[in-house]
Each structure stands twice: as structure tokens, then as C-alpha cells.
Design a protein around this nucleic acid. Structure first.
Lengths: 155, 155
DNA sequence: AAATTAAGGTGCAACTTCCACACCACGTTA
DNA sequence: TAACGTGGTGTGGAAGTTGCACCTTAATTT
């Protein structure tokens, strides 16, 4: 299942990545504290900003990522940099050109990706993360690194 | 679309969250550098660990999150703490009991969630993030916070 | 000159996943 | 006695995804 062979990192790189993950976990825990505290402080009794509100806000915030391939496309553009349609299709093993086309359109509509047309002939179309997409990609980085370590594809 | 009214944070909390997000972005960028550098250093010419390998490893790492509702369920347990089946169903507006049941089973199989049965009668079943699930939830925190700010549901 | 390749997709049938609705066994509450 | 809360499962249809064929334009290969 995992891509072989695993990438072997030097002990220094390994330590730095592990410490980045732990630091990010700390950030996440702190953010959780602030949101939770704010929720309780605002409405001790029946709150507008109760748990249901916060869950709904989070579901809403993640909405953009929760259809298949979206995260993978962002991660790919983040890792590989600007790519053209057929390059993405080769990198994203298993995606159909139909689905790739649909997802790229949705990501473009959501402001995560720019579609850059360089007209030829031949016309070439490059996809690039927007500033917003790039930030999302970076924020996904520690989670991806953690999952890679967990799965053993990086050691 | 966004949950109303927005949560208003104090300037201090706002600053701390923004700085957590920026710090996490820095971690993400650094991790990217290390992986990218390791890739090139390993195989200047034809590499085993080329971009395709890294994309595949990332797609693989994220596989667990890429079906509908999975991220939302994790985020909900992360925000709300341990919850029982019907509590989750009420919090996750729009999910069917069928789908919730299936997704909880899959998350349990993937080691993200523990299913805790307290037998009665009545039998009660509590779902709880595993240590692994909790870490994933924390790592998701900065991204969720960033998206909430972006959407204006937190100001 | 003809065929193939590559660009960036679209059209369609088959397949998989998701959803709404009904329902189950059991126990408590009204 | 009937309705309700507990944690789900069964079913059919709707929605999402896939593989394959195909399109237009132009360059390259045979």
C-alpha cells in the first residue's frame, strides 16, 4: 500500500520534522482552548456559540476539502508546483480526466487555484495555487508529514 | 452559508490565533523544504524519490480523510469531546444514521476512533478519538481556524 | 501524404458511494 | 398502552466517480 521504498531522512531532518509536528500540535491545542474558552465565556447558559455552532462552523470551513480528490489536488500542486492538465493527470494516479476537469473547475471557483491560459498555438493551460491555496497547502503540511511518518513511508 | 452570528474574538485572542496560523505555515514551508531537498539530494537524475513518489505518498497519507464526512466527524469529536451515536447525529447536520454508522466503523478500523461500549441496560456506546485521532485533530486545527477567519465565521 | 502524438478537455454508460426512509429490539417515560 | 430514546441495519434511488471513446488544433514521425 505504501509507496516503496520509504524515504529515509537524516536524523537531523527527522528531528526537525518531528519537532515541527509537535509545535503545530501545540498551536492546534492552543487554538482549541481559545475557541472553547470564548464559547463558554460568551454564553455560560444557553449560548449562541455553543458546541453545535462551533461544529457547524468547522464543517462549513472544511466543506471545500471534503469531496474526493480536492485535498490530493491541492497537495499535488503544493508539492509539485505549477502543473498542466495532463501532468496532473499522470501524477494523480487513478483520477479520470473527467473528474480532474470537474475538480479543477470547482477549486478555481473556490479561489484555491488559478487557471492560467498561455495561448499558442498550442494553447497551454497551467494550474497554480492562489495565495489562499498556498496557505492552505502549507497548513496541511504538518498533518501530511505526520501521516507519512505514521504510515512508514518516511523514516 | 456561514453560521450566524460570527464569533467575535478579543484582539488578543485574534492576534494569538493569527500568529499560530502563521507559525504553522512556517512549519509547513520548512517541512516542504526538507522533503523537497531530500528528494533532490537523493536522486539528482532519475530518482526513486521523485515528485511522483512524493505525490503518491501524500495521496496515500491523506487517503483516510478523503471520503465524505470523515474530516467532519474527526473535527466534531475533537471539538465536542467524547460523544454517543445520536449526539453525533444531531451535531452533524445532514448526515444520515446509515452513513454515520458506516463512517464510524471505518474510522474505528483506521485507528482514529475508539468505540467504547458501556453495557447496560441500556447499552450505551461512546465514540472517542484515539491518541492518533487526537493528534490528527490538533494538526487540523490551524487549517480550520484559518478557513474560519477566511469565511468570516470568526472575527 | 498519412498516421501518430500531444494539448485540454467533453460525452456517456457502468459502477460505487451516499442519502432518505423505513424498520428493529430493547427499555424508560407519559 | 403508546410514544420515545438507545444504536443501529435494509433497501431503493440519487449523486458522484470511473473507464473509455472521442473532439479540435497543430507538431512530429513514418
Amino acid at each position: 500500500m505504501m509507496p516503496e521504498p520509504p524515504m529515509i531522512l537524516s536524523p537531523e531532518d527527522m528531528l526537525e520534522i518531528e519537532s515541527s509536528i509537535v509545535t503545530t500540535e501545540g498551536m492546534g491545542a492552543r487554538i482549541r482552548q481559545i475557541f472553547g474558552g470564548n464559547r463558554l465565556r460568551d454564553n455560560p447558559a444557553f449560548g449562541v456559540h455553543d458546541i453545535a455552532w462551533e461544529v457547524e462552523a468547522s464543517v462549513d470551513a472544511l466543506d471545500v476539502f471534503t469531496s474526493r480528490w480536492t485535498i490530493e489536488i491541492l497537495a499535488t500542486l503544493y508539492i509539485a508546483g505549477d502543473r498542466r492538465f495532463n501532468e496532473l493527470r499522470k501524477l494523480l494516479v487513478g483520477i479520470s480526466s473527467r473528474t480532474l476537469s470537474d475538480k479543477l473547475r470547482k477549486c478555481t471557483e473556490n479561489g484555491l487555484i488559478d487557471r492560467i491560459v498561455v495561448d499558442g498555438p498550442p494553447v497551454r493551460v497551467t494550474y497554480r495555487l492562489t495565495e489562499h491555496g498556498l496557505r492552505a497547502g502549507r497548513l496541511l503540511g504538518p498533518l501530511v508529514a505526520y501521516m507519512k511518518l505514521q504510515k512508514g513511508s518516511v523514516q
